[in-house]
């Protein structure tokens, strides 16, 4: 079983549309994992049934019980996150600032502070229209995206793939280079980088690839909207050669992608102009490379 992780560094390069297209092509051979739990959009294209859902708990939040609190202020003294302040004469925790380190609760002389387990979201296993299964999640509002929910989604996808003898897991990662991205890269067999030929696209690609290199992972790259700027496209191609990254395909700027998305479809289901064939070829190329 191979795990293909799609990331981009920069947001809005077409990562989810392309990942969903691969999932559609892979059909029953592919378990899909939407690890962009912070702004999960894949369900809009793959129409999951949300058949099974479970709450996810991760991390803690301090809560001060006023009856036991003597207002001594030791908790606020040790808190490095400025999460405890005095409101109306009472020491109070700001839930948005609390990191859940638990230090305050440990040193409170009257045991007035409790660590509440945090519900950070919900994860699901769904049947999708490709004839396979998808693991996805919804992070709670303002919740800590430490990468633990991402790891949960990935591990469940892995378990399902093993149980049902699937050949592939396709993971839609999140933008950036922080905890959720690190978490989605762990255990990958191959990384697909989706970029666009803009100064930002190239800048972010270089940074995220530096991260991929730290994990010693093999990667390939799709240059989306490649005709928007031929010069930057050439710079990206040169970077790919230099770093020995597989150049998978250049896709033209085409509003078909948006039109398909607006209809809740992947480009494979709706295209008539040849984009479909380019994605079909890309999927074959990726499979050939990793097998």
């Amino acid at each position: 079983m191979k795990e293909i992780v799609v990331i981009s560094g920069k947001g809005g390069t077409g990562k989810t549309s392309i990942t969903a297209s691969f999932a559609f092509l892979g059909g029953a051979d592919v378990i899909v994992a939407d690890c962009d739990v912070d702004a999960a959009d894949m369900h809009l294209l793959l129409q999951p049934d949300f058949a099974r859902g479970e709450d996810f708990y991760s991390g803690e939040l301090a809560k001060i019980h006023p009856d036991n609190c003597t207002q001594c202020g030791k908790c606020a003294e040790v808190c490095r996150f400025e999460a405890i302040s005095v409101i109306d004469g009472m020491h109070t925790v700001d839930p948005l600032s609390c990191e859940g380190c638990g230090y305050c609760a440990r040193i409170c002389p009257t045991n007035a502070i409790e660590n509440l387990s945090m519900n950070v979201g919900k994860w699901y296993i769904s049947s999708i229209k490709t004839g396979s299964l998808m693991v996805h999640a919804r992070l709670g509002i303002g919740a800590d995206n430490s990468g633990k929910l991402v790891a949960k989604v990935k591990n469940e996808a892995k378990r399902l793939a093993e149980e049902t003898n699937k050949d592939y897991i396709i993971v839609d990662g999140s933008p950036g280079i922080g905890c959720p991205v690190v978490s989605s890269l762990s255990g990958a067999s191959f990384v697909v980088l989706v970029t666009e030929p803009s100064v930002s696209g190239l800048h972010d690609l270089k940074r995220v690839y530096e991260l991929v290199k730290k994990f010693n992972l093999k990667a390939g790259c799709i240059i989306n909207k490649s005709d928007i700027n031929e010069k930057v496209t050439q710079e990206i191609e040169a970077f790919l050669r230099e770093e020995n990254i597989l150049h998978i395909v250049n896709l033209p700027y085409d509003e078909q992608f948006t039109k398909a998305m607006t209809n809740g479809q992947t480009i494979i289901e709706s295209d008539t102009n040849g984009l479909k064939q380019m994605i079909v070829d890309s999927w074959s190329k990726i499979k050939l490379t990793i097998n």
Binding site: D38, L139, G142, D144, N145, S174, P175, G176, G178
Partner: peptide, 14 residues
Amino acid sequence: SPPGTSCPVIEATK
């Protein structure tokens, strides 16, 4: 600000 709705965004917008 960063994209998303989790901790980095909260810090940048609060």
